[in-house]
Design a protein around this nucleic acid. Structure first.
Lengths: 104, 104
DNA sequence: TATTTGCGAAACCAAATAGTTGCATTTATA
DNA sequence: TATAAATGCAACTATTTGGTTTCGCAAATA
């Protein structure tokens, strides 16, 4: 069973959940209100996000507040780093070509 | 059928293919040599990457050279932007707290 | 020309996924 | 105390996924 951050963000519903709880912690019910799917399916997504260590949960009485572990999102950023180098190099090369063309 | 860049990078084999062809364009056979899976399964991954518009292909005789559309990777970076703001803010807040503690 | 090579596509299969329904448990409230 | 609300979990289902095997086609080569 693959359980990494790339798996976590592959599903559009999970990306939407991430966007919601990035702003403020929310209960499963409150999250589910934003989708036209059942509360249980949201709970399953939350479990997956939890297994990927992408979210925190805090029990408050009978409610559980979920929030985003923002630092985990940085892992994607780290992975992207190698490609960012490539596209910036290409962009600079393009700039050089353009400025050379301009001079001629 | 979901076919977006997040789907594309969800699979570890596809991430490895992306890493390979980011450096230089390669044929399916050459790519497959780097994995212990069949050429056909690599071809299927290439088709998915193609449907996500993540790769270019260039026919050369009977060989097809695949390369990464690096600018497409930037889409992930754009999506990350919103979260980058959050984690940088939090980091700055932490820094402020630390420097205040230091002064006291 | 006959054979080999590189490739994509189709048919098939097992496992994973996303969703549902139906519980059980704990906490709040009438 | 009885009931309602918030939640997680298990069982089940349909669909998707990643892989294999087999095939056909076009290009290279003997």
């Amino acid at each position: 069973m693959r359980r990494d951050i790339f798996q976590a963000i592959a599903d559009p519903t999970r990306r939407a959940i991430i966007a919601l709880i990035a702003v403020q912690s929310m209960t499963p019910n409150a999250i589910a209100e934003n989708f036209n799917t059942s509360r249980q399916s949201i709970s399953k997504h939350l479990r997956i996000l939890s297994e990927c260590e992408l979210i925190n949960q805090e029990q408050q009485g009978r409610e559980i507040y979920y929030s985003l572990k923002i630092e985990k999102m940085k892992e994607i950023d780290d992975w992207l780093e190698q490609y960012r180098n490539i596209w910036e190099t290409r962009f600079n090369q393009l700039e050089n070509i353009l400025s050379r063309l301009k001079k001629e």
